[in-house]
Design a protein around this nucleic acid. Sequence first.
DNA 1: TTGAAAGCGCTAACAG
DNA 2: CTGTTAGCGCTTTCAA
Lengths: 305, 305
Amino acid sequence: MELASSLNYKPNAFAQSLRNQESKIIGLIIPKIVHHFFSNIIDGVINSASEQGYLVIILQTEESYEKEKKQLQLLVDKNIDGILLSLSDMTVQYDHIKEIINQGTPIVLYDKITKSIDCSKVIIDDKKAAFNATEYLIKTGCRKIAHVRGPLKPQTTIDRFTGYKLALETYNIPFDNSLIYLTENLSFEDGYHAAEKILEDHPDVDGVFAFTDLVATGVLVRLNELGIGIPDQISIMGFSNWFLSKITSPSLTTVDQPGYNMGRKAFKLLYNELHQIKNGEPVRQEIVEVSTKIIPRNSTKQVIQ
Amino acid sequence: MELASSLNYKPNAFAQSLRNQESKIIGLIIPKIVHHFFSNIIDGVINSASEQGYLVIILQTEESYEKEKKQLQLLVDKNIDGILLSLSDMTVQYDHIKEIINQGTPIVLYDKITKSIDCSKVIIDDKKAAFNATEYLIKTGCRKIAHVRGPLKPQTTIDRFTGYKLALETYNIPFDNSLIYLTENLSFEDGYHAAEKILEDHPDVDGVFAFTDLVATGVLVRLNELGIGIPDQISIMGFSNWFLSKITSPSLTTVDQPGYNMGRKAFKLLYNELHQIKNGEPVRQEIVEVSTKIIPRNSTKQVIQ
DNA sequence: TTGAAAGCGCTAACAG
DNA sequence: CTGTTAGCGCTTTCAA
């Protein structure tokens, strides 16, 4: 041993991997890296992984089903030990994922998940969070609340829409389908244009609940440009607590979605499975729910007591 | 071959790596993932890497010299084929990097570099870009321009400071050291507090050139709060063209620093070296300069013709 | 307790 | 041109 360290011996990672059938590398598949929420996820995953001696390969799906399949295959072909995956918005069929799990590579889903796959997951309760967000708008006096939602298929967009609807029902506000605005890309521009349509269709709207902060920011900037008072005439509620929500004028009230923590939890679940597999223990699927909370800022009015 | 594909044969990546002494994995070391500029870098690197069949392991230094050393070692121990590195702000000594290069793992520096290491680099001309930014403020009528700079040691902060100073000289504006504000973390909060100090020390300042958009945004938000007219009383110039600079009120004039492209170029340089090494060709160091440009927005006045 | 050897799965070299 | 084999460097097993 002394000789080894005096010669500055370092074991060869390839040979170790070949022999032990493990790489100490995991894959992290993300829809889009440049989104603030997802870069927080990456941060959490990388930090907790490195605490356990794992490295992380990152790939993006850019919301494409084909890319999701391709990136998963790349990771499996490299014999990584496990995968953290957030589904692309285009993914509605899950055989490619189930197959990988069946072949022995554990997958943990986070954020954008599906009930159709039996595996560990890290989620937030989107329905509850959207309910709370909408309820908050109602409690600040809003009565005609538009919802700028995302694409039809993903579970998150469905759940947040459902939560919105449920809050209206609970407070006896009639649901009006023409107040629902569908956006495809969940981009700043989508929000920007949605704002115009909302005003055109419903000049008397007094609140907007957007699917995510980026969209909410688009709405906010456009309403500002059009001289609409925020929150006096129209209140805006975002979702995710992106960094930018702190610096809009007025600052954006939003739902905090703790990406860093979700990243850490997701790695933890994967690590546990890896551990169980190595020790020949039965693998326990776990579903961890991370809690959200409303961050009151200045795009909404005071709650009426 | 038919039999192989009918049995769905996939070569074992561990054995391939062991045999060929290459992993087709590269390492990317980044100061802080959650910064918009760096997530663009990641995006560019991952995309161009995957075009050539390479995967990317990402690690952060969080501006710590110790972490930089540690992360480099982790990558080398995993036998990755090469490393893309942006120096931490605390790194002033480069032996750990030179040693890795000497032992045969190619390193390409990007963004935060040093002249002391002889290797391929992707840079912008910080001095020129800062000169242009300051010149732009002068041409819009500013005469008393504060500079919120970063830490003393990194080359980028030095170069941008030098460019600022040079522009003042060129336009016969006396340099005043009390207009230089040092920030340690280059954070939103740093800018926020700097704004207060600037006003306190120099109520007649008419322009602020900040080291980066995050700092500029902090300045902008605080000046807004204090009722200062932007750009009428004080103009603000950022640096990097982060996404958030588009959505501040007023929107922030800034210098576009093309992260995505820099990421692509950096991978390209590394790939070329890898190629040259494999073919036994002499390795050519290259220094690629990516051009920047000013993005005029509403935190500055019109250029006086 | 220490030491030797088999084998992980591939590729490149070499023999037939 | 096809088929066999050595060896990459490690770990684990088995023998001494």
